[in-house]
Simulated assay, not measured.
Amino acid sequence: MSGLSIGETARQAGMSVDTLRYYEKIGLLPRIARDTGGRRRYESGDLSRLHFIQRAQRCDFSLNEIRQLLEFKGCRDAARPEVAQLTEHKLQEIRHRMADLDQLQQELERLLKLCRGSDHGCPIIDGLDTPD
């Protein structure tokens, strides 16, 4: 039987062997073909699917969202509205997180400014110790 071993596939995909097994276990990868010794043998389509998963993760899609995207992949034209809605929702989440991070940045800058302007005590710890 041809195909790549799990170790070679993991190396080419830049993932761990455990991740490959996990993706198969949760259904992100279909059941992988086995050789006569029971060892997994990955084909080029499996590797392409792993790269798709990685790219989707870089766009901050969760594993459940990636599962949906993989399902939509088979009917791209019909699924376009659902994919657009999923992506819009993801974009909104990211905008909210960016706003939270901006607020966090401002708070840390404020604490650091207090620290640099103080000759005694620790304004950062005092600031964190103060209830909201």
Rank of each mutant, 00 (worst) to 15 (best):
A99T: 14
K73H: 13
H96E: 12
R97F: 06
T130M: 03
S2T: 14
S44W: 11
T36C: 04
R34W: 10
L70E: 00
D126M: 05
C115M: 08
S5T: 15
Y22F: 14
M15E: 10
R39S: 15
E71H: 11
R80S: 04
S118R: 02
R40C: 03
L4A: 01
R110H: 14
Q54E: 13
M1N: 12
S16Y: 00
I94T: 02
G37E: 07
R67H: 12
L69G: 02
L101H: 10
G45R: 15
C75T: 15
F52M: 11
G37M: 06
H89W: 03
R31T: 10
R80C: 10
R41G: 14
L50W: 03
L4E: 10
A13Q: 04
L70P: 02
A33R: 14
K73M: 12
L114Q: 09
A84M: 10
S48L: 12
P131V: 06
Q85Y: 02
Y23V: 00
F61K: 04
D132R: 08
L108S: 06
P123S: 04
D60M: 07
L20I: 12
S48H: 15
V17C: 03
R34M: 10
G37W: 02
Q68K: 10
C59T: 01
R39A: 15
L63N: 01
L69F: 01
R76A: 12
A84I: 13
